[in-house]
């Protein structure tokens, strides 16, 4: 009973957040709606008993990505976040058609081909077990991921830094 109520509330929050995030004219409102979506999804993960993933979702997406997006908006758009130009792209109609088509294609196998739903098993996912898995069979993946993150860090800094101005053009303070 609890689970059903929680599922419906959380899924409504997630879908609502996602819809507002992609359609809101004001970008800062959009970011906060996106964060609501992330929070709803984190709740769904918790409902699926993936508590560590839920925590990481909050930590990475809400704590880090959200702040990053806010900063990017403040650096690129105006501080108010308002987008007063035309916000809808030229190909919006075909975009919607493709979206609807993808939705139907995604749903058909989900409804038709999957085995009939089983009763949920009670499982006990421990964070310790996850750690052992990361350190033993998946250690190479973890290392590659670390390398990727370092490369992304350096790449992001270089890309955002832009071309350094020559010394002569620096205004004398």
């Amino acid at each position: 009973m609890n689970e059903v109520v929680a599922f419906w509330i959380l899924s409504v929050i997630a879908v609502f957040g996602a819809l507002v995030a992609v359609r809101k004219r004001n970008l800062i409102h959009g970011v906060f709606a996106l964060l609501v979506f992330f929070a709803g999804l984190s709740g769904l993960f918790l409902l699926l008993l993936a508590e560590f993933i839920a925590a990481v979702q909050v930590l990475v997406y809400i704590g880090a990505v959200g702040i990053l997006l806010l900063f990017a908006i403040m650096l690129t758009e105006r501080v108010t976040g308002d987008d007063d130009r035309r916000v809808t792209s030229r190909g919006w109609f075909w975009g919607l058609v493709v979206t609807a088509a993808v939705f139907v294609v995604l749903l058909l196998p989900a409804i038709q081909q999957l085995p009939p739903p089983k009763a949920a098993q009670t499982i006990d996912p421990s964070v310790k077990e996850l750690g052992h898995k990361l350190m033993n069979p998946y250690v190479v993946t973890l290392e590659v991921l670390a390398l990727l993150l370092t490369a992304a860090l350096i790449g992001a800094v270089t890309a955002a830094q832009g071309v350094r101005m020559p010394k002569e053009e620096d205004s004398p303070e």
Binding site: E51, F52, A55, L59, S126
Partner: peptide, 19 residues
């Protein structure tokens, strides 16, 4: 199992409120 991670995750939300 992940109480400390949860703690840090939720503390991070404070930043958003301030912003």
């Amino acid at each position: 199992d992940g109480a400390v991670i949860f703690f840090f995750a939720i503390t991070g939300l404070n930043t958003l409120a301030v912003f």
